[in-house]
Design a protein around this nucleic acid. Structure first.
Lengths: 224, 224
DNA sequence: CTTTAAATTTACGGAATCTAAAAGGAAAGG
DNA sequence: CCTTTCCTTTTAGATTCCGTAAATTTAAAG
């Protein structure tokens, strides 16, 4: 589960990130409205922990931008105790929950988890990117009306791509993720070529265009 | 991964460097405050292993200088067992970890590695200079709303410039950094011209102005 | 000592060449 | 049937090469 922490106080941000990491989340941090805006446009997160009091722009705009692009991420607002109005406005704009500063890390954690739980029950074990549709419960993959028959490795590969879309994944990244520790990092990763190839073939056959972009010398990137 | 070892005890310094080299790091050594100061100003390191007890100046100043120039390097303090205060002051100034003398090389290695790991995921992985934006986690470069498609070398070159912005980098610096040890320093570095050229072209094409200034007879400087 | 001209060094741009990464096909292993 | 290995071919990128332009130094002349 991936969390974006938007908080200009670096120390607080780091403490929070470390805590949540210990809890098993993958955290990324940004400190400004600019950066946050870039990140939420480019990548997919499960939860965005958003401090409304950013120095270089109104955090509210982040919420607007996320809703504008139909982001699936849950939004947890962090606000100072006195700024009730902001909090309400945020919730109206579509944030999912709020917490006031100062807060206990345990409480933040609890809220993040409850937010994720709620999202899940809301029916979303599905990942949708364009006309690609994956139901992680039944492990079914659709492109438009076409069902894709993927092998286990292909499926895991696709999922890894979807979860990290628009990011360059090196062959090492992929190997580590799909083969965990049973892999010798000194190996050549030729077999990855084959899996990529087969996944591409199946997706194109089912009518999609090739969303797996090769980045020469670096790896692969799923665009969408 | 490049490490600078700041340690006045030559024997210890050499032992340390050799050990870390065996572990796959590229190590440089300096023995005085003066030298260390120059090195950290001129080059980008991933980690600086810093002995606080230098003869010709307080190692603390190195930390200040590094922070002053927004160095991205991780700082690992080495201190004598009794000098608790120094250690604390160092951490306050922004060092990332410490180890007390005498230490086992294996432990130093472990700490260096954990430091690198932390830096990688922890921090914010964005570098923003003007309307140029780089996300090092996904290897993505944007100029305004335009994405830049850089090759591996171009990307590394840009990153090196960004970490050392407003500083003149010689072709030797660049060669050392981008090609590490696999380069013959007696070579001509003509190919660097080409990479600079291509990077410039792509950045200008994407709407930026040329931020890479040539400094005749010296090298290049990224201004911004 | 200053100005000007030639020589030298350094940098730039385009294009050819070389090399290593990636794709494609096929088949062995499990 | 799925995964991995092993080929060959293709291609993107890295490097080299060459002609030219700009900056700097040296040399010569006023």
């Amino acid at each position: 589960m991936k969390i974006l922490i938007v908080e200009d106080n670096r120390e607080l941000s780091e403490t929070t990130a470390n805590y949540l990491r210990d809890e098993g989340f993958i955290c990324e941090r940004v400190f400004t409205y600019q950066e946050a805006s870039e990140k939420v446009h480019l990548y997919a997160y499960d939860v965005v922990v958003l401090d409304l009091g950013l120095p270089d722009g109104n955090g509210m705009n982040i919420i607007r931008e996320m809703k504008g692009q139909r982001s699936e991420a849950g939004i947890l607002i962090v606000s100072a105790k006195n700024s009730l109005d902001d909090k309400l406005e945020g919730l109206e704009l579509g944030a999912d929950d709020y917490i006031t500063k100062p807060f206990h890390l345990a409480e933040l954690n609890a809220r993040v988890r409850s937010l994720i739980r709620r999202k899940k029950f809301d029916g979303n074990n599905c990942i949708q990117v364009g006309d690609l549709w994956v139901d992680t419960l039944s492990s079914r993959v659709m492109i438009g009306k076409q069902e894709l028959n993927l092998t286990r490795k292909e499926y895991e590969l696709l999922l890894y791509f979807l979860y990290n879309r628009n990011r360059v994944l090196t062959k090492e990244n992929i190997a580590e993720h799909l083969w965990e520790d049973q892999i010798d990092l000194a190996d050549n990763f030729d077999f990855i070529y084959t899996h990529i190839k087969n996944l591409r073939k199946k997706m194109i056959q089912a009518g999609g265009e090739d969303q797996i972009k090769s980045v020469y010398g670096m790896g692969y990137k799923f665009v969408g």
